[in-house]
Design a protein around this nucleic acid. Structure first.
Length: 398
DNA sequence: AACCGTCACAACCGCAACTGT
DNA sequence: GACAGTTGCGGTTGTGACGGT
């Protein structure tokens, strides 16, 4: 016996939607808003189950849906995101405004996966297939071999084989770079733009979250637009307790096995009014509160997807659920980019970039003081701050 | 013209996660 | 904590359009 249907199917319409049904659904949602899908069909006068109504609205009728062919730019982005996220269509679609997860999924299955196979790329791992020539022959065979007439379920055997191969291979977990930096800026209600960096740094409150092998808690949903008001109470919610400790103890990247802690150097400067001394570098582990230390951002990772600007500003988000890890995915993407950059140019010297500060001026001393020690991520979240996430590679000091 | 295979994509299904009680 | 209802996600299927024979 199978599972009972979500609702009684007796007397309900199925299959393609008619124009009249679309009109009824659209009018109802425009008047009453989304949600209450189970009750919606009856109220809207539709002989459909709520699930079908939701699907029709989400994938077809919503006004913000972009119709039409997927552009080459979007195509490239889908491939890139799929390489980073896998079959997480809703996450991928979230990076393509106006596109739905269903559309992206269909496009992948009908176009892109086959395109990659033709190019000799494993669409699951995005690594080169063992024998590119062989892969090409395989796709040619699909076109030319008259014995290659198969039922629908057999047609994707090539891809399934590819997938099986991928499952056998060991895929290295993605590790984060050591110098991830989360800088928080106060949110201004009168001015949605970020306040200048100088202003944020002048605040006594510790506004910088500096993380070494430490991430935003995976419970933070960067795709949500809600504020962090749900975090007002922590003591009663043990589910989140591990995320709310100071950043030193903050939630670690879940894929990382226990590793020997690596240290990194931090540049120290003389305090104001003190005798000029040479700048010095000390290991971060030896950094004390009285050090006037900066961590030079020597390279900002290229952003991908819609994170197209030098400084990506992401509002603090509501913590939805402990398992949600979209923020981790985002950082994973950035780290993939980081690895690519390293492959392109492994020289740290030539990788150094001058990046734009928040005031728009180019500044190769973009830095953040570690005033008062490392603040907690929780402090930043509690204050409803915006987070500017820049993933940096630390300058190598010789 | 009829048949058949392929393609594209809307729609469906099962399940897991979430939410409220 | 247990349970039931709701929502969202990803895999799969159904079906019309199209092209080749």
């Amino acid at each position: 016996m199978g599972r009972a249907p979500c609702c009684s199917k007796v007397g309900l319409h199925r299959g393609p939607w008619t124009a009249r049904e679309d009109m009824l659904l659209t009018r109802f949602i425009e008047a009453n808003g989304e949600g209450q899908w189970r009750a919606l069909p009856k109220k809207a006068g539709l002989l459909r189950c709520g699930k079908s109504c939701r699907l029709r609205w989400m994938n077809y009728l919503r006004p913000d849906i972009k119709r039409g062919n997927i552009s080459s730019d979007e195509e490239e982005l889908v491939i890139r995101l799929h390489r980073l996220l896998g079959n997480r269509w809703s996450l991928i679609a979230g990076r393509l405004p106006g596109r739905t997860d269903n559309e992206i999924k269909n496009f992948w299955n009908t176009h892109l996966s086959k395109k990659l196979v033709r190019k000799g790329i494993n669409p699951k791992t995005h690594q080169p297939l063992p024998n590119k020539k062989e892969a090409r022959m395989s796709t040619d065979q699909v076109k030319n071999d008259e014995c290659y007439v198969r039922k629908r379920n057999d047609r994707e055997n090539d891809l399934k084989q590819v997938n099986a191969d991928a499952n056998k291979s060991h895929v290295q977990p993605v590790h984060l770079p050591k110098a991830n930096r989360f800088i928080a800026f106060p949110r201004s209600s009168s001015n949605p733009e970020l306040l200048p960096r100088t202003q944020s740094l002048s605040m006594n409150t510790s506004l910088e979250c500096q993380a070494n092998n430490v991430l935003l808690p995976p419970s933070i949903d960067l795709n949500s637009s809600s504020p962090v008001s749900s975090l007002n109470s922590t003591q009663d919610n043990s589910d989140y307790s591990s995320y709310l400790s100071p950043v030193e103890d903050c939630f670690s990247w879940p894929c990382i096995e226990e590793e020997e802690e690596e240290d990194w150097n931090v540049k120290c400067f003389p305090h104001a009014g003190e005798e000029e001394e040479e700048e010095s570098w000390i290991p971060n582990s030896q950094l004390h509160d009285d050090h006037n230390a900066k961590c030079i951002i020597s390279e900002k990772m290229s952003s991908i997807g819609h994170f197209a600007s030098d400084q990506t500003t992401i509002p603090c988000r509501q913590i939805n659920k402990p398992e949600s890890c979209s923020n981790v995915n985002m950082l994973q993407e950035v780290y993939e980019e980081y690895l690519e950059l390293l492959q392109e140019d492994p020289s740290p010297q030539t990788n150094n970039k001058i990046i734009s500060d928040n005031d728009g001026k180019e500044d190769n001393n973009v830095s953040a003081f570690t005033e008062g020690g490392l603040p907690s991520m929780w402090d930043c979240l509690q204050q409803g701050l915006n987070l500017t996430v820049t993933v940096t590679r630390q300058e190598i000091f010789l």
